[in-house]
Design a protein around this nucleic acid. Structure first.
Lengths: 240, 240
DNA sequence: CTTCTACGGTATGAAAAAATACCAATGAAG
DNA sequence: CTTCATTGGTATTTTTTCATACCGTAGAAG
């Protein structure tokens, strides 16, 4: 086995210290809208358990997000850490800056990764026999995006994409899909949400769902690829 | 966004402490044959840097692997940690035990994950224009497996599969692919390596490479799916 | 047979993170 | 308006992890 493959396995065990990783994780949960505007995060004690870190470390992370203006922390019963962040105005002025802030290599890496994961997930879901509840869930998420208020579009779009991976029943795949999306969230948020684009994306979403429900793996994969390629090409175009 | 999606993002930040994670990583590098029998790991100082941990922590991990009989550590110049582990005799007696040691849900999860990642990677590689060096690499890995000594079969098979993800140029995808394979290594090692199976797998590997070189994403993906499905079905069959 | 050097082995103090226990505030329920 | 459960806030101790410096060994090169 060549040395190149050593890199895949002897890569860093830790992406950073516990504090940094926790800030990242929470920030992404907020930016992705997993916890929507105005809602509160789970209590510190619960969160610490779920994240596998101590409450002290979690609190440091929460405090830094509070100081950065993402959270409003209130104490007392019915208190908690409330999300006080709305995705930036979908005007998309600083896309070029955002793209170039991430390295060109990193961008290509993230886009390829996302493409592989999401295509694979859709493909697998298309080979699976879905029960009525699963079909309903998929269709529900589809209509949620299609009828989304522009301010809520990204959040529901994310939910739709994640649903595909989740419905495969593989937590690993779902986590990978979420991770892949996270790596391009900031960039996506900088892209204006325009009417024609929404309509176009809506048609592609419909195509993805149709292929999945029809049990057409190749079609589902191709539909996802087409859908993602549009965004990917746009982002690549902004590279300096 | 539903609560189910909270799980994807608010999952543990840390899989364990640095020591445990390091032991896992090294053990897998050994079991996968990334560092073959008789070879030595990089020096402690280099490894510590690459893994992003302190030398002290790394040494603890190495010592536990040494005590477990996986490594032979020698000091002095030209010393180091040498791999003293050979995959178990390909007799495959305890497959059922190995399968049931892992939970049924975990097994399904791992198999689905692997299927999605590897199909996605092959598909992407098939849409990529490979230069001559890349084509040569792919063909080299293919012939390596085909001409493998039975004792070295698993290692070269792993190398072949990883190559596909690596050739996409996405480190994230390569890491995910390695991770997916790691989750079923023990099970694969418990499957006897028999002549007919090797021949069959060889044909499938050939089909995968052909489809990739022909620029046929659907074909590549399907070929990978068929290849993996055989193993997956076998493993699922051993569930209690 | 000496030397040089790349390796593992060891010691120590600082920093990060975790575990634990307890304090304080809030606001709905009664 | 009192009670009380739930939440964030704080302090203390222990464990883990890291950073740094230095020691001991082996083996090739001269």
């Amino acid at each position: 086995m060549k040395e190149t493959q050593l890199g895949s396995l002897l890569r860093p065990v830790r992406a950073g210290n516990a504090f940094e990783e926790t800030v990242e994780r929470l920030l992404q949960a907020v930016k992705l809208g997993v916890v929507p505007f105005g809602e509160r995060l789970p209590s510190e004690r619960d969160l610490a358990v779920h994240l596998g870190i101590s409450r002290v470390t979690l609190r440091e992370a929460i405090r830094s997000l509070q100081e950065a203006g993402y959270l409003d922390v209130r104490r007392g019963r019915y208190g908690g850490a409330f999300v006080v962040y709305r995705p930036p105005d979908p005007g998309g002025g600083d896309l070029a800056e955002a793209v170039n802030q991430m390295g060109a290599g990193d961008l290509a890496d993230a886009l390829t990764y996302r493409m592989a994961i999401e295509c694979g997930a859709a493909q697998i879901l298309a080979t699976t026999t879905l029960d009525s509840a699963q079909r309903a869930m998929l269709l529900r998420r589809l209509s949620d995006v299609n009828e989304a208020d522009p301010a809520d579009y990204r959040r529901l779009d994310t939910a739709f994409h994640l649903s595909i991976a989740e419905l495969t029943g593989s937590p690993l795949l779902a986590a990978a899909c979420a991770d892949a999306r996270l790596r391009v969230t900031d960039l996506l948020n900088a892209i204006p949400v325009l009417g024609p684009n929404i309509a176009h994306a809506g048609a592609q979403h419909q195509a993805i769902v149709s292929a999945i429900l029809a049990g057409d793996p190749d079609g589902a994969s191709r539909a996802v690829a087409e859908h993602l390629e549009g965004t990917a090409a746009l982002l690549r175009g902004f590279l300096a």
